[in-house]
């Protein structure tokens, strides 16, 4: 049980960090903020990699594979489109 309290602590503290950091993002950058933070939520790719590769059962491998495709779209597409937008803001 103790380790779960630890995880909860990490969760709550990083929520606070999130509020602090993101409150400072200006409205002009809210769309790139959404697509960029969205790419970060693709971190679930880490779990998908293990499910897809651990060969536990056919079903879990399949689930892992689908999750991996979803998460990779999210990560690659998210960072790339954010980069495209931010480059436009930088030009001038």
């Amino acid at each position: 049980m103790e380790e779960w309290v630890m995880y909860l602590t990490v969760f709550v503290l990083s929520m606070f960090v999130g509020f602090e950091v993101i409150t400072k993002v200006p409205p002009t950058l809210h769309t790139p903020l959404m697509s960029g933070s969205n790419a970060i939520s693709g971190i679930t790719i880490v779990g998908a990699l293990i499910s897809a590769g651990s060969g536990h059962s056919t079903l879990t491998t399949l689930l892992g594979f689908i999750a991996l495709v979803f998460a990779t779209i999210n990560v690659v597409g998210g960072f790339l489109v954010t980069h495209r937008m931010l480059e436009m803001f930088k030009r001038k």
Binding site: S14, M15, I22, S41
Partner: peptide, 10 residues
């Protein structure tokens, strides 16, 4: 946990 909560907060 950390990354997810950052995005959740955002």
């Amino acid at each position: 946990i950390i990354s997810g909560s950052l995005v959740g907060a955002s």
